[in-house]
Design a protein around this nucleic acid. Sequence first.
DNA 1: GCTCAACTTGCACTCAGTGCAAGTTATGCC
DNA 2: GGCATAACTTGCACTGAGTGCAAGTTGAGC
Lengths: 173, 173
Amino acid sequence: MTERGFDAVSVDDIVAAAGVSRRTFFNYFADKESVVFDPDPDDPALWGELLGARPGGEPLWVSLREVVVGYTGACAERMILQRRVRLASPELAGCSREVADRFWDAVREWAAPRAGVDGFELELVVGAARMILHASCPYWDASAGIGGLHSLVRTGFDTFDWTRHESRTSVGS
Amino acid sequence: MTERGFDAVSVDDIVAAAGVSRRTFFNYFADKESVVFDPDPDDPALWGELLGARPGGEPLWVSLREVVVGYTGACAERMILQRRVRLASPELAGCSREVADRFWDAVREWAAPRAGVDGFELELVVGAARMILHASCPYWDASAGIGGLHSLVRTGFDTFDWTRHESRTSVGS
DNA sequence: GCTCAACTTGCACTCAGTGCAAGTTATGCC
DNA sequence: GGCATAACTTGCACTGAGTGCAAGTTGAGC
């Protein structure tokens, strides 16, 4: 797929290479996209770990930054593969959205009771974090390793610096 | 589609209702999604107008806010239709992404020479504006008109208030 | 009435994806 | 070993999206 493009590789090609039947393929993957973009089954556990590791008093914005860094660090290999496929087939741009949605749902769920922000404001903060990761990806030179992505993400978080808002919106202390 | 869901309406249904052949349908629409999500052919002109109307010295963040408000105001009818289809068929969540991409490309292109920010920072600011609109939509009660969306968008822009950054990054004055 | 271009259509085809029923394999129990 | 059962695999037939091609239709201009 990285060589020929996503469309030029049919499901028949895949099952022939894998030595299984067409039907078996669809027992395991909902569609062709899933081969590349399906989540690791123990992703949710990883997210839980990352979120659970944040210390109690940490500002939300810092937690979000560290969770994004940790997330990309742990999924680096898959991200690079997906990046290669997407580079060859730009029409797949929106493809891992669903997985990402689930990740950010988990983040929102975790953040809501901690941050004391209402629905829409929470949507905005978490949305900003997501946007920073999203904006960083095209500027990341993947061949130089995941560190480059991390520093872009940190720059992004510094640029918006939600922490200032937190002091006026947090309810805890 | 808003009643039965997107998948339950086949292209055959559409062409039967429209009184044209299947083949003719595909001469005008690249795929079934296009029926609902294709851009208006004179959208780019509208964008150009909105962007061109911004006064010279206006802070970028304010311009972006007003452009988003103007954009949603002009496309209210289509947005409401798309919202209804999406509500019935959530799997289409990422569907108008391509059109939106073109809009935000235009915004970036317009903003770059004005704002004096580099690629990544521009990506972040414009990405933030886009995220604010995106975050506002699910909280918008469409039945109450477009005004509700506008006030959510304004709240979003106030929440991040990029203007403060502008003073330290702008090159013009 | 003729010509040419634009548009429409039917047909045959490829590929994705699904439901069903039958076949195969593995497991555990007597 | 023999057997019941569940899990997995497969083939088959089908629907629906989307495309290439070649033929037919329409309409405007001369």
